[in-house]
Amino acid sequence: MDLSSKIYVAGHRGLVGSAIVRKLEEKGYTNLVYRTSSELDLTDKNKVDSFFESEKPEYVFLAAAKVGGIVANNEYPADFIRDNLLIQTNVIDAAYRNGVQKLLFLGSTCIYPKFAPQPMNEDSLLTGILEPTNEPYAIAKIAGIKMCESYNRQYGTNYISVMPTNLYGPNDNFDLETSHVLPALIRKFHEAKLNETPTVEVWGTGKPRREFLYSDDLADASVYLMNTYEGNQFVNVGLGKDISIGELAEKIKAVVGYEGEIIYNTSKPDGTPRKLVDVTKLSEIGWEASISLDQGLKEAYDWFLTNIENATTVAK
């Protein structure tokens, strides 16, 4: 990408999209295009087509998606599969028909089988059953990968797919009904500290292991891959290290300064036992993460404190 290339960031106000915008601006890219969901409904094919026909972006970062944690995925499975299929289908097809030079599709490591060998290698896709709690979302993301691969094969496009591990950072979703575990814990511990609540409840046993990548690292990897990588094989992006939910809770408790007790609600689901991605392919391409979990947690909590009035509202 030239610094003057016209770049469309879909989902620019979300956790991932906002990080990509920050990274592009930091690197000197000046011709960025984006729309809020109220300005452009990406589930509406006609509106997406009109946008691409009028704007003619040269590069597209497809970071727009309907996302959420275990609660949201369990309660709104139809919304998750429908909206994500519509968004990615409309954007990928419009990109092809309007001559976009390159597109980067952002997926999720929930595409992997529930009991995939750890760390999860790109070759593990479609080798086993998915985690039931987020299967509709995962199937939509798998469809996005296959759509990019298929357009490359049939139409000669240059579309790449990136599968990030669990993400956190500025503009995260802190709504306890729809958020992922890390931002939910930040909010829980913060409110417990303010209210002097003696205990904080954590869902499950605390034993499942998860990997967490700061959103600015993903943005850096995405821009790097857009500029350097071509190929039909999608690429994992992660830190290469994982941590148990219990250990994560203790770290967040310390960052927030909460002095009460952690209680584990074992009647709630644990989800996948372990999710650690194999980042060998990414390392071979020439990129690795630079923000440690300890550093990222401090920065994420600082952002939450600065933006506390709006932090529990999902960006649109």
Rank of each mutant, 00 (worst) to 15 (best):
N227H: 10
G260W: 00
D242Q: 06
F234C: 13
K253H: 00
V237T: 02
F234Q: 14
T197E: 15
V255P: 01
N227G: 10
Y229F: 06
E247N: 15
D242I: 03
F234M: 12
D242L: 04
N227L: 07
V223T: 05
N232T: 15
W203T: 13
E201I: 14
K207H: 13
L213E: 00
Y229R: 01
L218K: 09
G231I: 04
E261M: 12
S244Q: 07
D220P: 11
G238E: 10
E250P: 00
V235K: 08
D242K: 00
Y258T: 02
T205I: 07
Q233T: 14
R209E: 10
I263N: 05
E261W: 07
N195M: 11
K241Q: 10
G231M: 08
I243G: 02
L239E: 02
I245T: 14
A219L: 08
E247P: 03
V200S: 05
E196H: 15
K251S: 06
G231C: 02
V255K: 12
A221G: 06
T197R: 15
E261F: 03
G240Q: 01
P269M: 06
N236F: 03
G206T: 11
D270G: 09
T228K: 10
N236C: 14
T266H: 10
Y214L: 12
Y258H: 08
D216F: 11
T266R: 13
E261C: 04
Q233L: 15
E261L: 15
I262T: 08
S244Y: 01
Y229E: 09
Y264G: 12
E250W: 02
Y224K: 00
K253F: 03
D242N: 11
G204R: 11
F234R: 02
G206F: 13
A219Q: 11
W203S: 13
L239N: 07
Q233R: 14
L225E: 00
K241M: 09
L213I: 12
E230R: 09
D242E: 02
T197P: 12
I263R: 15
V202G: 05
V256P: 03
N227P: 02
E230M: 05
T199N: 03
Y224E: 00
K241E: 05
I262R: 15
S222W: 06
A249P: 04
D242F: 05
A254R: 11
K268V: 13
T197F: 07
E259S: 13
T199I: 14
G204T: 00
L218N: 03
L213H: 03
P208R: 03
A254Y: 11
A249S: 01
P208Q: 06
T228F: 03
N227I: 12
T197A: 14
I243N: 00
I263L: 02
G231Y: 04
L239P: 03
N265V: 07
K207E: 15
W203M: 10
G204N: 00
G231E: 01
E261H: 15
V200H: 06
V237A: 14
Y224G: 11
L213G: 08
E259I: 03
D270R: 08
S267H: 09
P208W: 07
E201S: 11
K207R: 14
I252H: 04
Y258R: 01
E196T: 11
